[in-house]
């Protein structure tokens, strides 16, 4: 495979009995790209992402993530990726420092690595004075930036972000996206799932899933042009309304 490709799927499919949750999806994500993965509730986003994270074996088709095969090398995939979501990211009852040590330990990093990386992140986030505070005492915006840094702690090639910026204030949100841009600029591939279209606008390219299939894939600008509108919300509504599958 091409060395510039971080994720490649071809006809990737997942069936649960007679139900086809993900139906022959094919796409490539380039290294260092910020890729938006959109779809309504029940469109198959989570199932597809679980396969790409090595957590679920596909029923059919092929996929490689960071060069590893999702069927045979899922343990290697897990080591090469980071994951952050709004619901799950940090342990509230551990301190800032303990969270980092914990994640570093899980990924088998040396004490030396953990020590240096912890210092670097505390400097970057200007959290030195808060290093020994419990995470639950931090404001939401700080937690979110810390969660991202922790997900990046083991220097993964690809980071999966599941609705990363819901609920935070607009200033913190910008700081967060600036961090994502910086990560992408240094070669990390960013895979964002969201159903908020304004988040989609920050991505280099976005795909939109409807009923288990990818119905559209392009840059936000090109999608808006093709669907003759000036908002991604409109693009999404036009596509998602074609859905026949009920989210129930």
């Amino acid at each position: 495979m091409n060395n510039d490709t971080a994720i490649r799927t071809h006809d990737l499919t997942k069936r649960f009995g007679g139900f086809i949750a993900v139906n022959k999806i094919s796409f490539d994500v380039k290294k260092g790209e910020i890729f938006g993965f959109l779809g309504a509730n029940g469109a198959g986003k989570t199932t597809a992402m679980r396969m790409l994270c090595g957590l679920s074996i596909p029923s059919d088709g092929m996929a490689t993530v960071a060069g590893f095969d999702v069927y045979k090398e899922n343990e290697k995939i897990k080591k090469s990726i980071g994951y952050m979501s709004q619901q799950f990211s940090l342990y509230d009852d551990l301190t800032v420092k303990e969270n980092m040590r914990f994640y570093g330990g899980i990924y088998g990093k040396s004490n030396q690595f953990i020590k240096e990386k912890t210092k670097l992140i505390l400097d970057q986030l200007q959290l030195k004075n808060e290093a020994n505070l419990l995470v639950k005492s931090l404001p939401l915006g700080w937690k979110q930036k810390l969660a991202f840094s922790v997900a990046m702690f083991h220097e993964p090639e690809i980071i999966f972000l599941d609705e990363p910026t819901g609920g935070v204030d607009p200033v913190t949100r910008r700081e967060f996206w600036t961090m994502i841009y910086k990560a992408a600029a240094t070669g990390t591939t960013v895979f964002v799932t969201t159903h908020y279209m304004d988040e989609a606008e920050y991505c280099d390219r976005v795909s939109i899933m409807v009923d288990g299939r990818i119905e559209a894939l392009d840059t936000p600008a090109a999608l808006k042009k093709n669907y003759n509108t000036n908002s991604m919300d409109d693009v999404f509504l036009q596509l998602a309304r074609k859905a026949t599958r009920k989210s129930d």
């Binding site: 309504a40 159903h195 309304r241 989210s247």
Partner: peptide, 10 residues
């Protein structure tokens, strides 16, 4: 509308 998709939100 927190946590619901764009179609349901609309």
């Amino acid at each position: 509308t927190t946590g619901v998709d764009a179609v349901s939100r609309k």
